[in-house]
Write a protein that binds this DNA or RNA. Structure first.
Lengths: 206, 206
DNA sequence: TCCAATGTAGAACGGTTGGTCTATTAAACG
DNA sequence: CGTTTAATAGACCAACCGTTCTACATTGGA
């Protein structure tokens, strides 16, 4: 009687089904029955691998976080060698995501909406995901030698959220490219990195 | 036996309770029982005034749309006489909203997330709300004599969505002021209106 | 005064939900 | 070989859900 955390065929199928259904239909909108059907797995198998529906939800959120952040980072790295272009590629990543048939917004925004209490475990997991995304973006800004990388990362993240939600409520709105254009303007008008000396830097005794 | 659409005490209490509960707990997260309790109204009264739970949901969405847009427009008009300042006041309106104790994000974003199918009646109502908000913002941009008011309105709306969602997932993040700062940059770097003549305008034979 | 409308209280319904229990099968491994 | 382990199928449960129904009280006009 071991409570293994190693993936078993049944456990794997369960998680995959949960991922898909929780994402597109929401958590409260997805019944255990529907997950079992999709996974083609017996009822008991679920409770052998997960404590409860809530346990399965937590596993779903963690897996989705890992995969989404992984995809994002892979995409921007593959997009360009230039560190500034990689930032803009964030919005191409979104654009690409939006075109996928099963796009239903951000799973974590949706979850935070479904569980509005900020103290709720699912809401907390959602907030943590957004923290991770923010720090990934901040890393991109640092690599691009932008001054105040965190501040710009926050702005870039806000633009991403806006694009995601706009596209969710009004599909095919082209929000990703809209956000990209704003991001361009933002970065072009941000303070220049020190290794690009400006005339201002050469002044003495200010 | 008349199916009046005039508000009755019971009908009013029901709608008010539904508004509050659907907003903070979501639609699937709110039971008929909870609404009856909150309204202090008998079970039968609900089905006398509304066809079903879905009917009550539709009434909630319509009322919320009316009230929210009304508040927004009142706020920006009261904020300033200057047409450009009114645009910036959009984000002060958000800031004010975010500080309210029961803030739970945008009811329409939440609803579109809960009913992800764009063909679902609730999703459609949510999309329509966003259309109305967009046209209100566009009107502000026209009043400010901005060139291409719709294009700028879309950008301003995207910033608003981003701020709302950011604040929802991560409360007290100051996202409204963040968005306001980006909006400032956006408008300052947008093409100037014709009634503010520039040197370019005074040239002859270009 | 009577009647219709609007309200209340609460039982009852069929369906669904998350979760448990039992019994059985099949492979993995000492 | 026998035992453990994960898997299966499906009955079962209590709770909850949206909805309907019955019975009764209040009230404001014709």
């Amino acid at each position: 009687m071991r409570t293994s955390s190693r993936p078993t065929p049944a456990k794997d199928a369960l998680l995959e089904a949960a991922c898909s259904l929780f994402y597109t239909n929401g958590i409260r909108g997805t019944s255990i029955e529907a997950i079992l059907d999709r996974a083609g797995v017996a009822r008991q198998s679920l409770y052998q691998h997960f404590e409860s529906k809530d346990g399965l939800v937590a596993a779903f959120l963690n897996l989705r976080d890992e995969r989404w952040c992984g995809s994002m980072n892979e995409f921007v790295v593959a997009a360009s060698d230039d560190s500034i272009e990689r930032i803009y590629a964030l919005y191409d990543f979104l654009d690409n995501w939006f075109r996928q048939a099963d796009f239903s917004g951000c799973a974590f925004i949706n979850t935070a909406a479904e569980y509005s209490n900020p103290a709720h475990p699912f809401h907390i997991l959602s907030a943590r995901h957004k923290e991770r995304v923010l720090s990934d973006i901040e890393a991109l800004c640092q690599a691009a030698h932008l001054t105040n990388p965190l501040a710009i990362a926050k702005q870039l993240a806000l633009l991403m959220e806006g694009a995601i939600v706009t596209e969710q409520v009004t599909p095919r709105s082209g929000a990703a490219q809209e956000a990209k254009a704003i991001a361009r303007m933002l970065i072009q008008h941000s303070p220049k990195p020190t290794h690009t000396p400006t005339r201002t830097n050469t002044r003495r005794n200010t």
